[in-house]
Amino acid sequence: MPVLECKGLTKRFGRATALEDVSLTIEPGRIVGLLGPNGSGKTTLIKLANGLLTPEGGYIAVCGAAPGRESHGQVSYLPERTAIPTWMTARQLLDFYGDFYQDFRREAAEEMLDHLGILPQQTIKQMSKGTREKVQLVMVMSRAAKLYLLDEPIGGVDPATRDYILSTIIGNYNPEAAVVISTHLIADVEKVLDEVIFINQGHVVLQSTVDDIREEKGMSVDELFREVFKC
């Protein structure tokens, strides 16, 4: 069963159409890049998949069921903006995630935080922007979810933090789960992805594997993206 499936999915905000007739399938074990310029509908699609938005038309399912209370237990979501309470200490944050999510692997999270040199009594407020991003990603990846939705996980962080984030995603790879990464920083994520979905003005314009693109076009996904979305 696909982890995420959309058929003819449409989302409007008033008169503006954010997504129109989007159909796609994401299978377990895949790391998928959701790639498109700013305002193309990436965040809208992610929010529809985790039930934060409801569609105007079409069908969307996570592990066969419409997003809702049940799918919340299977979807681990990294929002575009840091959303963890800044007054908490690292330890309180671990407790918080443990209370909220049955699938939270506390030991895995502790190990990753320890690896980052974060002390349990340190508050989120005391951490730099890059460290907060890393901590939030650690929390999100420490859940044994079926679908990880990462909205711009590498935007606005330095290259070393970017590498850390990408290797954390690879290190937590689970063949039963799918990871969706939305970004416009393609050159950085390309090697980590199985597949890419190009989205433009609310439409899916391409779904292919990274190596098929490289094999057929003789260019990287980044180069193809620049060609497709030339201004």
Binding site: I170, G171, V210
Partner: peptide, 14 residues
């Protein structure tokens, strides 16, 4: 595979 993928910074399936 996972360790080699992490070290090379590539997708584990690849």
């Amino acid at each position: 595979v996972r360790d080699m993928a992490t070290e090379a910074g590539v997708n584990p399936n690849t």
